[in-house]
Amino acid sequence: MIKLYDYELSGNCYKLRLLMSILGVDYKTVPVDFYPGREHKSEWFLKLNPLGQLPVVDDDGLVLRDAQAILVYLAAKYDAAGTWYPRDNPELLGEISQWLAFADGITSTASAARLHDALFYDFDINTARAGAHRLFRILDEHLWFGERQERQWICSAKQPTIADIACFPYIMLSEEGGISRQDYPAIRRWCDRIKRINGFIVMSGVFPAGPAKAA
């Protein structure tokens, strides 16, 4: 069975819990005392991931690090319908990769701001927040135009992809870093759509949405 080295309050770990829940993949978690214990910098963990970062997945001996990389792996392997990461659609794969990199940018800004405010990391808070707002403006614009073209998700597929999963957590948690989403109405609507995907689960800090109107 898949083993997820996990910390409950990590948005990056949540990306994987979320996708596995949606795909109905069984997994077990190995709790890592990220805070305050800094167990991800412990000797045993560094052997698993020399970068000293969560998350890490061990699937029957295949050890992978980096949330985005793991999303690719899980979707490519376990999504029978092949919509979350459509392996035979080069254009879409390009788009997905582009937004996975964008998601990493959200981690280094919005998540950094949250680590600063909540866990007292020594980051420059103003730079982190400004960086997050810059990315949110780009994404809000992208999603607003998407709505005009009947594109509901980040990439131009009918269904959501792992790009949506990768961007979602640290956007939802941004307020914990003092980054309001008030100026991003299209992002707020997209968050509601994600929350209504079958199999959606929450993490601490993320509330569920109510049901959509029955058609």
């Binding site: 910390y7 409950e8 709790p31 005392d33 805070y35 214990g37 307020e175 601490s204 800090g205």
Partner: peptide
């Protein structure tokens, strides 16, 4: 339970209150 399991439970709970408090 291991320390980290006990902590995880409490942190989960507090993490749920946090967005309420901040709103």
């Amino acid at each position: 339970n291991e320390d980290k399991v006990i902590k995880r439970f409490q942190q989960t709970i507090f993490g749920q209150d946090k967005p309420i408090l901040e709103n």
